[in-house]
Amino acid sequence: MKKQELIHLHSLLAQVQHSYEADTGSEVEHDEYAELGVKPTSIHKSKTDHKDAVFALADGLTSDMAAESDEPLTLTAD
């Protein structure tokens, strides 16, 4: 995968994160991603840096989503 493609994927995952956080009202825990200090707009960072960031962000998102799916479903009356 080319660096430009990784940056695009990184941007898409960041959008998924923001959408997920808006839908659930909670923040995704991703300390590893935050420690890397690589954002989708960090175009000066290396291809490897973006690859590591993509994996860390994807791992944080899937872990959070898996934990949420393990919670029991509660129904509320409107």
Rank of each mutant, 00 (worst) to 15 (best):
F55C: 08
F55H: 06
H30K: 07
L13S: 02
S26Y: 12
S63P: 01
M65W: 04
S46H: 05
Q4T: 14
T24M: 10
K47M: 10
D78F: 11
A66V: 10
T24K: 07
A77W: 15
V38Y: 02
K47L: 07
L61C: 04
G60V: 05
E21P: 13
T76I: 11
L6A: 02
Y20I: 01
S19I: 08
K51C: 07
H8G: 05
V38E: 02
D23Q: 12
E68F: 13
H10R: 03
A66D: 11
F55P: 03
T41R: 11
G37A: 10
A14L: 04
L12I: 10
Y20N: 00
E21I: 10
L9G: 00
Q4A: 15
V38G: 01
F55G: 03
A67H: 04
A34I: 11
T24F: 13
S26F: 14
K39E: 09
L75M: 09
I43N: 09
P72N: 05
D31E: 10
T41G: 12
I43V: 13
F55D: 06
S69D: 09
H10N: 02
V54D: 01
T41N: 11
D64Q: 09
A66K: 11
L75H: 05
G60R: 00
L36Q: 01
D23M: 15
G60Q: 04
T76L: 15
S63A: 10
K45W: 06
A14T: 08
D23S: 12
Q4F: 13
H44S: 13
M65G: 05
L61F: 09
V28T: 08
S69P: 04
P40R: 00
A66Q: 09
L6G: 05
S19N: 06
L36R: 00
T48M: 14
A34M: 13
S42I: 08
L75I: 14
S11E: 05
V54I: 15
T74Y: 13
H18P: 02
D23T: 08
E35V: 04
E71C: 12
A66F: 11
A22M: 14
A22G: 05
E5V: 11
Q4M: 07
L75S: 04
Q15W: 07
T62N: 09
H44A: 15
D59I: 03
V28A: 00
H50G: 03
S26R: 06
Y20K: 01
L6S: 02
A67W: 06
A58P: 03
H18R: 15
S42F: 11
S63D: 10
D59P: 00
S42Y: 08
L75F: 15
A56C: 10
E32P: 00
T74I: 09
H8S: 14
T41F: 13
E5L: 08
A53H: 04
M1L: 12
A14G: 00
L13R: 00
S63I: 09
K2C: 15
Y20L: 03
I7F: 05
E35A: 11
H44R: 08
M65P: 03
E35K: 12
G25H: 00
D52K: 13
D78Q: 07
P40N: 02
H8W: 13
L75E: 05
A66N: 08
A77T: 12
H44W: 15
L61W: 04
